[in-house]
């Protein structure tokens, strides 16, 4: 089978879906928009010669305060692997802060179930169409989304010899 170039095929078959292509460090990133994401992923999986048939990972990134500035605050990266040709491709979608909704690809990719829930929990992006909207990692009654850049680390002051007593007095100790 003839191997095809994913970027050229996408440009030919789905015009308008490829917003940008970044070639860096032996990796190809295809930037697309939210509406065409399911079509791009399905095309990459089902076209002979591409066959990116394994969804490795879905990751969300918060670009708040990033230099150089990113187009939108959030981005979601889909890493696809073609098991026949051993190639990896990253499909990236930028998500604005004002409308943090992504299309869920769970119907086509069963492996996307928990990664999508994780992003929903940790970054607060909503995946429209995902049947299970509960938090995945944090407790159900948790406030906020920890992996956002404006969420504090939740750091507690460390006890050293000079501030031991001061912190120890405030530290909650358990009773019997």
């Amino acid at each position: 089978m003839q191997l095809k170039d994913p970027v050229a095929s996408l440009r030919a078959e789905l015009p308008g879906a490829v917003l940008d292509v970044i070639e860096a460090l032996d990796e190809t990133t295809v930037v697309t928009d939210r509406a065409s994401l399911p079509h791009v992923l399905a095309f990459l999986r089902d076209t002979p010669g591409l066959q990116y048939n394994f969804l490795v990972d879905i990751t969300g990134v918060d670009y708040l305060g990033y230099t150089p500035p990113a187009p939108e605050r959030f981005a979601v990266c889909y890493h696809l692997l073609a098991m026949l040709s051993n190639r990896v491709l990253r499909v990236k979608v930028y998500v604005p802060e004002a409308d943090p909704v992504m299309p869920s690809i769970l119907a086509q990719w069963p492996a996307a179930n928990w990664p999508e829930r994780e992003i929903q929990d940790m970054l607060g992006l909503d995946f429209a169409g995902h049947p299970d909207k509960r938090r995945l990692l944090m407790p159900q009654d948790w406030d906020g989304h920890p992996l956002r850049k404006d969420y504090p680390l939740g750091y507690e002051t460390v006890q050293f010899s000079f501030n031991w007593q001061e912190i120890d007095a405030k530290k909650p100790y358990a009773k019997e």
Binding site: M138, P146, Y151, P152, L153, G154, Y155, E156, V158, Q159, K171, P172, Y173, A174, K175, E176
Partner: peptide, 20 residues
């Protein structure tokens, strides 16, 4: 004992806050 290297939002800084 004290939270160790994970001084963050998720980890209780020492289990003595919960049980003696």
């Amino acid at each position: 004992s004290c939270g160790g290297i994970f001084n963050n939002y998720a980890i209780v800084q020492g289990v003595d806050e919960i049980v003696p």
